[in-house]
């Protein structure tokens, strides 16, 4: 640990890596609770893997047509692919209730396959894809930081604007619709924020592991709090701890910092996950021996109901 701080004096990348972790934690804190509450972890995973197709396309275009696309960074392609896929997935979620997992699973695999295919046919030798798949927190440039800061700012502003609408969607989409909130359009905005957050997190843990940071800190937040706002605060703190502390601890060892971040987050989740599966708040508020899952009373079985009801 001391080696990290000693080296940090001369190696600015160590500081930019930590700063990137903190910036990503902001997006994670804002969007993660919605991903968990709306049960969108699988869809977020699909967005991440579809983004790989965009990363591959950007690498191919920059290499095959340098005069036109030489400026294109792989992450730009990832962002474009995720942003295009987000509304498609939102619409699919609303239209395909029964076969959604099959279709999303197919898109997940197709996105990744396109990325691999494009890398394969890209002229020259390219190793960038690996850093986008598994993250590269050790080499975050100032330019990357600016990019992350802009994306995080967009996420915070939009999420603040849509806070009540997103909460309504998480709690009761039918009621939200009856109250005049356009549910599909609001979901599209939420999916776009998730896509943006996926790209922000890519720099930290890579597209393959992005699901962990998008879900585990928020799951911890949901366990420890009973309202969305505090849940976001806890998610931010957990994400900030998870993206900085393991990086410092494993510095100078053969352990991959990206893997350490995910494993530390999973460890924290295991620490706070109550054994019975209910949230701690649920137990506090209920009389001893009574289950949240069974609020009904046996007295309710009245004999005066229809025999065919």
């Amino acid at each position: 640990m001391t080696r990290f701080f000693a080296d940090a004096v001369v190696n600015p990348f160590l500081w930019t890596g930590l700063a990137a972790g903190l910036l990503a934690s902001v997006s994670c804190g804002v969007v993660g609770p919605y991903v968990v509450a709306r049960r969108l972890v699988f869809l977020a995973g699909a967005l991440a893997h579809i983004a790989i197709g965009g990363v591959g396309a950007a690498i191919y275009l920059a290499a095959a047509h340098p005069t036109l696309f030489g400026w294109l960074e792989p992450i730009h392609g990832g962002l474009a692919a995720a942003v295009v896929a987000a509304p498609v997935l939102a619409v699919l979620r609303h239209r395909l209730r029964e076969r959604l997992d099959t279709v999303v699973g197919a898109l997940w695999a197709v996105g990744m396959s396109i990325g691999i295919l494009l890398i394969k046919i890209t002229p020259g030798y390219h190793t960038e894809l690996m850093s986008y798949l598994f993250g590269n927190i050790s080499f975050v440039s100032r330019r990357d930081l600016v990019f992350l800061a802009v994306l995080s700012a967009v996420v915070v502003v939009v999420a603040t604007l849509f806070y009540r609408r997103f909460l309504a969607l998480c709690l009761d989409p039918e009621q939200a619709e009856l109250r005049g909130v356009p549910v599909l359009a609001t979901d599209v905005v939420l999916f776009l924020l998730i896509a943006t957050t996926v790209i922000v997190l890519t720099q930290i843990v890579g597209l393959i592991l992005v699901i962990a940071l998008l879900s585990l800190p928020a799951a911890i937040g949901a366990r420890l709090t009973t309202r969305l706002g505090p849940s976001m605060a806890v998610t931010f703190v957990v994400s900030a701890l998870a993206t900085t502390a393991p990086r410092i601890v494993v510095y100078g060892t053969p352990v991959s910092p990206e893997a350490a971040i995910v494993l530390a987050t999973a460890g924290l989740y295991l620490l706070v996950a109550p054994r019975g599966g209910d949230r701690p708040g649920d137990r506090r508020a209920l009389p001893a021996g009574r289950s949240v899952a069974a609020p009904q009373d046996p007295l309710s079985s009245r004999t005066n109901k229809f025999p065919f009801a």
Partner: peptide, 30 residues
């Protein structure tokens, strides 16, 4: 059946405030 997801961290007041939601509801606070 209340369509309200028990997994969402929300108080009873949050649920009741949904009744005040409208197409003009922007920002974080009621």
């Amino acid at each position: 059946h209340a369509g309200i997801d028990s997994g969402v961290p929300a108080s009873v007041l949050d649920v009741v405030l949904l009744g005040r939601l409208s197409a003009a509801s922007w920002g974080p606070r009621f």
